[in-house]
Nucleic acid binder design. Structure first.
Length: 112
DNA sequence: CTAATGACTCGAT
DNA sequence: AATCGAGCCATTA
């Protein structure tokens, strides 16, 4: 994985994820929609996979539309994601974020 | 070049 | 209401 030119899409995802405020979460589809492609939600998750080497990417703040921590198994430890979210004031139960709407961050609305 | 996979989402049955 | 399938873009083999 040396010098690999990444497409704009990935960097776009990184920027949006990095802009997520503390204590807020968003979904892959929302990020994809903000980028303009509604169907490339999978690519967002794939971008996160690539972003694994970027500690500045709070991937733990990115969950699926149900608020389920789908990618928690991809973290160094399965409890890392939940612990980080809880540390930000979020409540997690069964790998699912409680009060998701209360902590949901919409780039289209909040970021403008 | 074709095929398969991936941390998702929506629509149809 | 729950389950299944197809779509989307990019990377890897």
């Amino acid at each position: 994985m040396e010098k690999k030119l990444k497409p704009n899409f990935f960097e776009n995802v990184y920027e949006v994820v990095k802009l997520i405020p503390s204590g807020k979460v968003t979904s892959y589809g929302t990020i994809a929609a903000y980028l303009g492609s509604k169907g490339s939600a999978r690519m967002v998750g794939w971008a996160m996979n690539n972003a694994h080497g970027n500690p500045e990417i709070p991937a733990h703040r990115v969950v699926n539309q149900k608020g389920l921590l789908t990618g928690k198994f991809h973290f160094e430890e399965s409890n890392t994601m939940q612990t980080l979210l809880e540390s930000e004031g979020l409540m997690i139960e069964n790998n699912q974020i409680l009060n998701l709407e209360n902590h949901f961050w919409n780039p289209q609305t909040e970021l403008i």
